[in-house]
Design a protein around this nucleic acid. Structure first.
Lengths: 215, 215, 215, 215
DNA sequence: AATGAATGAGTTTTCATTCAT
DNA sequence: CATGAATGAAAACTCATTCAT
């Protein structure tokens, strides 16, 4: 069997095992058995547990980012673009729960080489979302007379909150297979969230502890 | 030295160690040394590594929930109540980074006995937030003529998104010691987010893939 | 059983095993079994295979050097001092063949941390011998009218040759238990060697490729 | 490429690798890579790691012995013959440091099949030297009235000492590339040593612990 | 109440060696 | 002739856990 195929089999097995048992609890024996090969072969192809884990993270991160980028409907209006990206995110995480668990739960837990990789992916997504938000502002905000520009910090904060909310919803959705929201529902919930917040931001209607914007 | 005190010292040491090195990487030797006692004593008081970890999670979870409950200004208007709860959350996580890392990062990583414990705490917070939201609806929504009731699913989705966003912001804030948002800023960011979304929800203005509410 | 005692037992076992099977071939399991303890205990006390090996070398080197120093009859004339040192060397190596094999054969074979240790010991012995030779020159050489001083290079060369010859004889003696020379004979053989060479050196009678000093 | 050539390439690579990394630390992968062939080919030609190592030892031992024999100036007087042999030894070891390290350091370290091979080579050299010494005695000793015959043990002891001293000097010379003695110097140093000792032996002037011959 | 001494079981990693092609 | 693919066996090292005192 050619090397490339075997390697993917190993990565599949490793992603499953790491996601379900955690990095330290997953033994190389387990992974080799799952992959249907002997342990030395895993080492021959992937060098060490660390490198194997890193390879898993890279593959899953790339896969997730690619899925989001592919899902965005580039020619649609801004809100629809944002929605389609979110939808792609929820669809992919729902279809690859192990990969998502690997990125969201396992990779963050373990020291620097791995967490950095995930942080980089997250930053890429956050930046992508920030870009979508800013484009949306430019496109839709023009009509309003009293539109403010959005500062970088505001956009980043909004993007972080959005991504975090998305991750939380994805986890909720994944946890109760079927019982949670569908990808469409989750994306819509977030849009309600984000679109309204974005509008407020642009109109300069900001909630602050002292006064109330009102519901 | 009385037993209760020794036990707290051990838990302190364990929380630090588990948070910083992860469950599997933290050895009982490390913890005993950190606590300044001998290893058999740790076993005498806390039975096993698993039980010790569980005790840490329980203590930190209770501490976080208590902090949030204590922070809520019960006699203030609804928005202020929500804000004060969020503020309490951000303050506590900023002041107890090890405890927060234990709950947010470590506890989820390891199989069922622990993740369940954290899920329970999370559920408690979500329920609490849901309650705050519903109260807010009742209180503030009355004025509006066209107010809808919020369904259970809607409230839960909103709450999950809110909690996830909060966690994401807390992590962002924690990551760049000082550079990120303060507790006040983080809480305000979320309020802008949530309050607007909540308002939309009540007014029946919902974003949906087919049509656009507009910014 | 107290730690110090166990530690010596472990070192005894390790010296035997390393000497007979070589560093890489000696497994920690072997050594632990030889010592009558479990493997983790060996690690608890001696940290790693490398450190264990180093500890063996240090102990045996110190023991050999001490034996030589103790054997030298300090108040005797120079030749007798040299002889007694050699005699101490041959006696000790004959009585501790494993220790001698460890130093002479094993320690040199394996990279820097260990070879350096043995080289240091060897340098100490060479220096000691050089000192004995120089003293002998001063003491006995005076009578001769035409005595030259010995240069540092000459003394070191002689000392190296002497130590090498001694090691070779010790190995010969050790190899054929009983069949080889006794410590006395070996020491005497070397004295015949060294003493004559020393005399020639002092008298300026040097052999060179072109001419012959004659037998 | 013909088999014989390939085989020599493999032996070259193996000698280098074994000499520099030690028998156990040198992997067949390393050697095959060094030789520029695939691992199965090494096995096809040389059967096993042990046989490969043995082949290396045999080749290097034969090469060293041949170099010494070739260096001896058969028609020269006895002292010159001995000197030329020593000179050949030092020259060869200086020019083939890996081969010398293999014989002197590595081969002795590992159990019986290999050490025996080296011991045989050493015995051959010792015997050769013994022969040279005895011939020298016959040739040069005749003039002296009071010449004793040399016993077999005496000759062997002298030879062993001489070979050991030579090895020690070779190691010294090898260690400090350039800084140590040249082949000429090393050989001369030993001649000063040996020739004088030999003369003493023949004249019956023997050093013994009880009395002193004097310097 | 508290600890020094001790270990069984399991982990990652390496390597000599062999087929099928 | 030559090799890519594959593995059984073993070695270094760690750790949760328990006694005897």
């Amino acid at each position: 069997m050619p090397r490339a195929v075997r390697e993917q089999q190993m990565l599949d097995a490793a992603v499953r095992t790491f996601a379900r048992r955690g990095y330290r609890n997953a033994s190389m024996d387990d992974i080799a058995e799952q992959a249907g090969v002997s342990k030395p072969l895993v080492y021959l192809y992937l060098n060490s547990k660390d490198e194997l884990f890193a390879a898993c993270i890279r593959r899953e991160a790339a896969s997730l980012v690619a899925a989001i980028r592919a899902a965005v409907e580039h020619d649609a209006p801004a809100d629809r673009r944002l929605w389609s990206g979110l939808h792609g995110f929820f669809t992919h995480t729902a279809e690859h729960p192990d990969g998502w668990a690997l990125l969201h739960v396992q990779a963050r837990t373990h020291g620097d080489p791995f967490a950095r990789e995930v942080a980089a992916m997250r930053a890429e997504i956050v930046e992508f979302v920030t870009h979508l938000l800013r484009t949306a502002v430019r496109e839709h905000g023009c009509g309003a007379a009293r539109t403010r520009r959005m500062t970088g910090g505001e956009a980043a904060g909004l993007a972080y909150a959005l991504v975090g909310a998305a991750e939380s919803l994805a986890e909720w959705a994944g946890g109760r297979a079927g019982g949670g929201p569908s990808a469409e529902e989750a994306a819509a919930t977030l849009m309600n969230f984000a679109w309204a917040g974005l509008g407020n931001l642009l109109r300069g209607e900001r909630w602050s502890p002292g006064e109330r914007v009102g519901a």
